[in-house]
Design a protein around this nucleic acid. Structure first.
Length: 918
RNA sequence: GCGGACAUGGCGUAAUUGGUAGCCGCGCCAGACUUAGGAUCUGGUGCCGAGAGGCGUGGGGGUUCGAGUCCCUUUGUCCGCACCA
């Protein structure tokens, strides 16, 4: 009987649904295992063949863990808020809630066809009020908290207020936007608005003026990770720097813990490194420079306090607030012009000419705090307002950017580290001996830094300081399709809703554009205010809000009293395996860790780092096909014959190409312009060219998984996606190879599944069959453990090759279990129908190894003579070296290779190699 | 510019982690069967050479009895960060 995958797969989809096979609950008797995928944003385009790669890998792992006896939580849901649905709504008038619901239905159907073992009752949707209630709830907790540096955790804001009332800022050490200093009396004297502003300076979710990435085309601000090369990640629109009042999350308060936590995670080193760079910790000194003729001090940050005697000039960012006050009257106009020009330039323009040196002198001078030397103060956009203090001391001899600036404006370049020719380039390395540097002359750079840090603190010039590149996350978006803030405004003060007022649901509106006054679309909603008439916040939360704690919600998705109940949290605790793309390295994976650390601080969850192991699947690229049209004609020449013609390559839909051969009739029907196309064939066929490109509609290289499932079945698709190459590697999709995997499943079916062939026998397997089986079990278990699914699939194929035709239960039973994670439908069918098991395969345990057949029981020693490998000698494991030597010398092969000569020595590495030197 | 990863047949890849390079699959070649197909099965397939044999893991050098694997150097590809003081 043929392998009818359509019928088999439909049947088991139905059975799993009916039996609620993958329903998961707390089971204290079994160890738990939590396997999670990064949930998708349900875009209108549906899935292409690249999307399920990670889902297939995680499902294989989840099923494997179940077979090993674990209680596996393996859920799926939808990250449903987001910009594309809203953009689509603006264009078509279709409400995002409607399109999102349609898209989710489509995704669910597509995923369901792939045989994933998700618990359908745990599906979540971030745009569902019962879900975003808890996003709002977490936001309110952050709003009501500050970060106590002394306890190194978040504390209720009421404690801070109490401290202010008691003693002002004197006993407070808290993360803040701007350091403040006031007494209890001064606090008491503040107006409600002033007190509110002070508290926002400390809240973990707060409103403040800040430089933001403003995207005019999208009409919203964007977070740093949503801006790529000065363009918006979504849509690629230009992004400007602009000062605006925005909600923010004080992620910087957690910078150090986010950094340290990385060491406890089983993530790839490269991903950890990306996060370390993103957090960007640097140690140095904060120093104050007096300004000539002014009582104001200029505050700078440097990692190289040792080079202060080489400070030739100071540079301020154009946005620095002291700039206008510093500029002397004769320089004022030049300074103003420069600032105006800098403001006009978009982030992208600024980056584009990063190498062009520009700046103006302010006319003012700072004084070197060590020797009183006059140092001219300049402004330039190579100094960023957002990092450090927005001001630097420039040491052109030892910083390449300062060097370029000094060269351009002909400023002095004084070396303070020995052995550098600073006329050609700066000497940036932190090595060498100090010169021209007063009391630190002769010291090594590293020692000089330490001595200088002490000197700076002793003399009251400044203090040691750690700076982070990480910025606070801008948390409001001027959009409609996101979580509403549970905030209303009373006399201009942001007030939180009470927990029992949650969720604050998103009102229906039908025009999604900003208002004429430039307010967000929510300002159009009628009745968008509290019952008392106080207006609600009109911004909504950004995409990462809903995805920051979703893994917790899966543990307890229907709980309406807590984000996650205590019992569920303590049982499931953390995600044991998280699979997703590397593109979330600096976005979701930073925000999630921050969010969770906060929840941990307030006692809402029990784990500080809940994403224990992370595997990044590679991207599936497209494999585009080309036809070659002879220029000026409608004639197409086959790939191998195009030399000698002037041709223009045209993308052709990969659906019209099979094994690189063009379906000519299909091609003619594809586009009216090709209806009368003519072809120059090679060997009677039209061969297409190909190239690896991003999988996208415009390249006509999108492969839809539905079609693969239709043609080959889900089991084939699953195995082939794994077979394509290492999970973590990017690789192009190429349908060409899929027959090999499909053939394998057909052979398995013929061997184990088909009814009507030879009966399944209870005969004892031969030692060779058993050895093959156990070798395969060992290999597949190891490979799944290492996420090396491609080699696991190979091992299964080899197993069938070696077994030939074997209808023995003792072989087929374990083999079916072993194959099940990869090809769940066919194995269920074989298990129940051909092997006649009554209990579900789902509950079956993996067979234990039979030690008698372990491959390690013996070892094939490679024997080399004078370094040339000659043969392999199979010997039992664990015998002493002397016996190995004797056995090898007695071997007839040895005699042959020695050719009568006596061995000078033997090198025996137990379990490795035997070398004879003659 | 800085940081990271990678480089193996016509193609995707594998290599007991320092031990006979090329497993498995695609493609290709030959054969069988055939209702002629983009089905199935069997065998072959790194390169050069008629053969013996030689050469082969981007290039060059090194360590080692032995290197795809380790070290140095160089070239190329991909990714991340990019005036971060």
């Amino acid at each position: 009987m043929e392998y009818n995958f359509r019928e088999i797969e439909a049947r088991w989809r139905e059975e799993w649904h009916k039996r609620k096979t993958y329903r998961t609950g707390i089971d204290a008797a079994r160890p738990k295992f939590y396997v999670l995928d990064m949930f998708p944003y349900p875009s209108g385009a549906g899935l292409h063949v690249g999307h399920p790669l990670g889902y297939i890998a995680s499902d294989i792992y989840a099923r494997y863990k179940r077979l090993c006896g674990f209680n596996v939580l393996h859920p799926m849901g939808y990250d449903a808020f987001g910009l594309p649905a809203e953009q689509y709504a603006i264009q078509t008038g279709q409400h995002p809630a409607v399109t999102t619901e349609q898209n989710i239905a489509r995704y669910r159907e597509q995923l369901n066809k792939l045989g994933f073992s998700y618990d359908p009752e745990r599906e979540i949707n971030t745009s569902d009020p019962s879900y975003y209630k808890w996003t709002q709830w977490a936001f309110l907790r952050m709003f009501g908290s500050f970060y106590c540096r002394r306890e190194n955790r978040a504390r209720p804001i009421e404690e801070l207020v109490a401290a202010f009332e008691r003693s002002g800022t004197s006993e407070v050490d808290a993360a803040c936007t701007v350091p403040l200093d006031f007494t209890a009396a001064q606090w008491a004297a503040k107006s409600p608005h002033e007190k509110d502003a002070v508290l926002h300076n400390y809240r973990l979710a707060f409103r403040a003026d800040t430089m933001v990435n403003w995207c005019e085309a999208l009409g919203t601000v964007l977070a740093n990770d949503e801006v790529v090369n000065g363009l918006s990640e979504r849509g690629g629109h230009p992004v400007m720097q602009r000062k605006m009042t925005q909600w923010q999350l004080r992620v910087t308060a957690y910078a150090q813990r986010l950094l340290e936590g990385l060491d406890t995670l089983q993530w790839s080193e490269s991903l950890k490194e990306i996060q370390r760079n993103w957090i960007g910790r640097s140690e140095g000194a904060q120093m104050f420079f007096a300004v000539e003729g002014s009582s104001e001090k200029l505050e700078i940050f440097t990692t190289r306090p040792d080079t202060i005697f080489g400070a030739a000039f100071m540079v301020l960012a154009p946005e620095h607030e002291a700039v206008m006050a510093l500029a002397t009257p004769d320089r004022l106009r030049a300074v103003e012009e420069y600032i105006a020009q800098a403001k006009k330039r978009s982030e992208r323009e600024r980056m584009a000419d990063a190498r062009t040196v520009s700046g103006v002198f302010t006319g003012a001078y700072a004084l070197n705090p060590f020797n009183g030397a006059r140092i001219p103060i300049w402004i330039s956009d190579y100094v960023l307002a957002g990092y450090g203090t927005g001001a630097i001391m420039a040491v052109p001899a030892h910083d390449s950017r300062d060097w370029a600036f000094a060269r351009h404006f002909d400023l002095p370049i004084v070396p303070v580290v020995e052995g550098a020719d600073v006329s050609q380039a700066s000497h940036d390395a932190k090595e060498g001996r100090m010169i021209n540097s007063d009391f630190i002359d002769g010291l090594d750079v590293k020692d000089a830094i330490c001595v200088m840090l002490d000197a700076v603190e002793e003399r009251g010039i400044g203090r040691r300081r750690v700076n982070y590149r990480l910025r606070d996350a801008i948390f409001s978006r001027q959009r409609y399709w996101g979580e509403p803030f549970p905030i209303y405004y009373k006399d201009g003060i942001a007030m939180p809703l009470r927990d029992d007022q949650l969720p604050l649901t998103l009102p229906r509106i039908d025009d999604f554009r900003p208002t004429e006054q430039g307010e967000p679309p929510l300002a159009r909603a009628k009745g968008w205010h509290t019952p008392e008439g106080y207006p609600y916040e009109t911004s909504t939360m950004p995409g990462f809000a809903g995805s920051s704690a979703y893994y917790l919600r899966y543990m307890d998705p229907h709980n309406d009293r807590a984000l996650v109940g205590r019992e569920a949290d303590e049982y499931w605790r953390a995600v044991d395996l998280y699979v997703g793309g590397i593109e979330h390295a600096t976005g979701h994976l930073v925000y999630s860790r921050f969010w969770n650390k906060f929840l941990y601080d307030i006692g809402a969850v029990v784990e500080a780092e809940p994403l224990r192991k992370l595997v990044n699947q590679g991207m599936i690229q497209g494999r585009s096909s080309f036809v070659y049209r002879i220029v000026g004609t409608n004639t197409f020449v086959s790939h191998g014959l195009r030399e000698g013609y002037e041709t223009q390559p045209l993308h052709v839909d990969v659906g019209l190409v099979r094994n690189d051969m063009l379906d000519i009739e299909g091609f003619k029907a594809w586009r009216p312009e090709f209806a009368d196309a003519e072809f120059i064939l090679e060997d009677g066929r039209y061969v297409c060219g190909w190239a690896v490109e991003k999988m996208s509609k415009s390249m006509f290289n999108v492969v839809n998984p539905d079609r693969i499932v239709e043609d080959y079945g889900a089991d084939t698709l699953r195995m082939y996606e794994m077979f394509l190459g290492p999970l973590e590697q990017s690789k192009p999709w190429d349908t060409n190879g899929i027959d090999g995997v499909h053939k394998f499943l057909r052979r398995f079916w013929r061997m184990a599944g088909s009814i009507g062939g030879a009966p399944i026998s209870d005969e004892q397997p031969t030692p060779a069959e058993l050895k093959t089986l156990h070798k395969t079990i060992k290999k597949v278990r190891e490979d799944i453990g290492n996420f090396s699914f491609n080699t696991a699939v190979s091992a299964l194929m080899i197993c069938l090759n070696e077994l030939g035709d074997c209808r023995k239960r003792a072989i087929l039973d374990p083999l079916t279990r072993l194959l099940h994670p990869f090809a769940p439908h066919i194995t269920e069918e074989v298990w129940a129908k051909a092997l006649g098991h009554c209990e579900p395969l789902y509950d079956a345990r993996m067979p234990e190894f039979d030690p008698a057949y372990l491959v390690e029981a013996s070892f094939e020693y490679p024997v080399s003579v004078n370094g040339k490998l000659r043969f392999k000698k199979e010997l039992p494991l664990g015998i002493p070296v002397s016996e190995i030597e004797a056995a090898v010398l007695a071997d007839e092969n040895t005699a042959r290779w020695l050719e009568g000569r006596a061995p000078k020595k033997m090198i025996v590495v137990p379990g490795k190699i035997i070398n004879i030197v003659i």
